[in-house]
Write a protein that binds this DNA or RNA. Structure first.
Lengths: 261, 261
DNA sequence: TTTTATAGTTGCAAAAAGCAACTATATTTT
DNA sequence: AAAATATAGTTGCTTTTTGCAACTATAAAA
């Protein structure tokens, strides 16, 4: 493909003229020259499953605003250090949770005049999934903790609009679990099928049929059996598997739980 | 839950209220000076279906950088005018496409040191869906056009990283069409079932079975029959329907096209 | 009046999911 | 050591959902 648009095409037909072109032009130039910038931060919703429940990592704010309140980890993007927003999120993930490369996905950007008392602020929020075993909390235990998520909240107030952000993140997590394989990122590299099923049950908050679940996961062909390797426990030992392709995002052809309709 | 954390558990310390104004004022100055801000813009991927093909709205840039190039509509957020990022997107939608309230959803935020020659820039991208009938392009025909999307590109280069953004938007659109009802937003308020099916076929790029499609859509119970109202044409007239609830985002229990596995 | 084009329905075969009983293999208990 | 118990994994059948193709319905065009 070349560097120039086609001279012809279906694009000319439906372009009804309307309001004054001079006005639009004026607005465009105004925008370009004013360049007033909002504050820009990156926040993280870091999920894990521990003790049969979904947990999120929260930090206690050491500085105003909302000093002493619990909030999502995150902070200002530093254009000198961060080559990109993604890189900034990865940096903060290391700083806050000491984790190298878990599943990290952008949730969305929240920005408004009044969500931060310091002024117009936009924050791009990422959510991360990790195995609870792989987490090393840095710094003091007192100012960073895993908090159990009940429903879509933690049971107490959070600073800023972080309660709403957390609720959105939980919703996105549930929604993606219905259709994708991302739950594997909440487990260590090697895991068993019953462990994976338990993750789905905990987050979707409903029991799943064992045989249907296995059928579905095996048909998706995402797991690699680790021959001879088993997880011992009380009953019969369970076969260990590994997720086949951590980069590809695959979808189930059906949602896991039947939707109420 | 209430406005106060539980006395026990990991949340014990989350008691403090929001910052007092005097302290916030002090910190505002501190933060403002110590944190460099990136530029912040909002861009739009505006989709419609015309002439049996998916189209996106592109504008020809009047100013550098990429002057003369085609790019996605958008521009700098203005903290004085825009109460939120969402509001900024809605404003730009009116300015660029003269549309009041189509489907508007945030895609994601792209930000890096080198995506704009003017410096570190973050852009939050929204994608909009609208019926081709409802569009009034403002300004000159020459600098805003509907361009046919083939695969996930338009066939010529775009300014900035907009080609990649457009590809991401197309992918998101396809993905959401598999599981949700958003295709109705690409049609006028009243439409027929064959028209809706055609939208799915065009965007998913594959034929769909008539009876399965109807069964699925009717079971989802999202459409309201308009008694006595029909669309005339060559063959048998088609029943007109209206989408029942424009706010609710509902999901199909299965994806529409069978996935290759 | 016949042909053609499109809308919409129906019936059945095929595929997938739900369900429950069954086997397998370990630990714990007696 | 045998029995009880707990968990993993399989199998067979029923029910549900889908895919497919033929069928009917209703208009305009020939």
């Amino acid at each position: 493909m070349s560097g120039h648009p086609e001279p012809t095409g279906p694009d000319r037909a439906g372009t009804t003229m309307a309001a004054d072109p001079g006005e639009a032009e004026m607005l465009r130039r105004h925008d370009a020259s004013s360049h007033e910038k909002p504050f820009f931060t990156v926040d993280l919703v870091i999920f894990t499953v521990r003790d049969e429940h979904l947990h999120a990592l929260l930090v206690k704010r050491a500085e105003p605003p909302f000093k002493g309140c619990w909030a999502l980890p995150g902070g200002f993007l530093d254009p000198r250090r961060d080559a990109s927003v993604d890189a900034c999120a990865a940096r903060k993930l290391v700083e806050e949770a000491g984790v190298r490369a878990p599943y990290l996905e952008q949730l969305r950007t929240y920005g408004s005049r009044d969500r931060d008392p310091r002024g117009w602020t936009a924050t791009t929020v990422y959510f991360a999934l990790m195995a609870s075993e792989s987490v090393r909390l840095l710094g003091n235990q007192e100012d960073a903790r895993w908090v159990r998520v009940r429903g879509d909240e933690v049971g107490f107030d959070l600073g800023f609009d972080h309660a709403r952000i957390l609720a959105d993140a939980v919703e996105r997590l549930r929604s993606k679990l219905e259709y994708t394989h991302i739950a594997v990122h909440l487990l260590p590299e090697e895991f068993t099928l019953p462990e994976l099923q338990r993750i789905y049950e905990i987050i979707l908050q409903q029991p799943l049929d064992k045989s249907s679940f296995r059928r579905r996961v095996m048909q998706a062909d995402m797991l690699e059996e680790l021959p001879g390797r088993q997880r011992d426990g009380f009953g019969r030992p369970a076969q260990l598997y590994r997720f086949r392709d951590y980069d590809r995002q695959t979808f189930f052809p059906r949602s896991i739980s039947r939707h109420a309709r």
